[in-house]
Design a protein around this nucleic acid. Sequence first.
DNA 1: ATTCTTATTGAAACTAAGTGCATCTATAAA
DNA 2: TTTATAGATGCACTTAGTTTCAATAAGAAT
Lengths: 140, 140
Amino acid sequence: MKKSGEIINKLSEQGYRLTPQRMMILSAIEDGEGHISAEEIYAQVAAKYSRVNISTVYRTLELLKRLGLVTETDLGDGRLRYHPVGKGHHHHLVCTECGAIVDLGESVLSPVKDVLLREYGFIADLRHLAIFGRCANCSK
Amino acid sequence: MKKSGEIINKLSEQGYRLTPQRMMILSAIEDGEGHISAEEIYAQVAAKYSRVNISTVYRTLELLKRLGLVTETDLGDGRLRYHPVGKGHHHHLVCTECGAIVDLGESVLSPVKDVLLREYGFIADLRHLAIFGRCANCSK
DNA sequence: ATTCTTATTGAAACTAAGTGCATCTATAAA
DNA sequence: TTTATAGATGCACTTAGTTTCAATAAGAAT
């Protein structure tokens, strides 16, 4: 039960205002296991402070994304999921047949990241990717 | 100016009906340079046959996607883009700063595809990916 | 403590995409 | 050629996310 300090500090360092809405959105993101959706964040915040608007949640997520503090990932269930960057990087294999999700270390994509940087000077954001396809069972 | 036969043949082989709506949607996808959006397909079809509904476009795209006949890619402009698989595979580097899009051969991701198959038995669909990040200019 | 400035918020409208259901029609069977 | 039927469509509605704009309030300056 920590105080979501990491992201808050970075926001205030960079001159962004620390509104109560933002504080509550941040703790919703930093508590829990990550992979939270905008609606879930909204539900958590609204439970304590019913005046929040969901567009504030979306706007805060957009900001955190732009500052590189959270990653946004489409896991194929129709809503985007958010993960605090401070909690570590990983990827997912998502089976489009049965819906199974397998976690994947960060290292699988590092060679790609390196090639893109070397050959194109492109700094690829490959911190939390969902790779779709068919799992071992479904393609047997 | 070919007759969008490839996809039509595959649909009818597999027992799907060849409705006039589908035929018009298919030629919209197969003519042109690919990377067409659902709205653009709808506009093209509606110009000839104003009774089509856009949900038919979405449903047809869903079908073609499921059958592996088109790829769906988010190039970051708020609408998904579709590309006929028969026209070849490639990827895109999308700069989240300036919006520049650089094309990329298929080969960059083949090693990843191989590793996922070998180590997880996972058949990854990596035929038309958009990789977001910062281009050489924007990260100078 | 009060005032000021501008970032942030809430409300509502809007967009892209997906869904449920009654109707219609492409295709196969008679 | 006509009929039957399951697949496909149109329409209305829902959902996730974005945008506009007037009102509010965080944080700086006084």
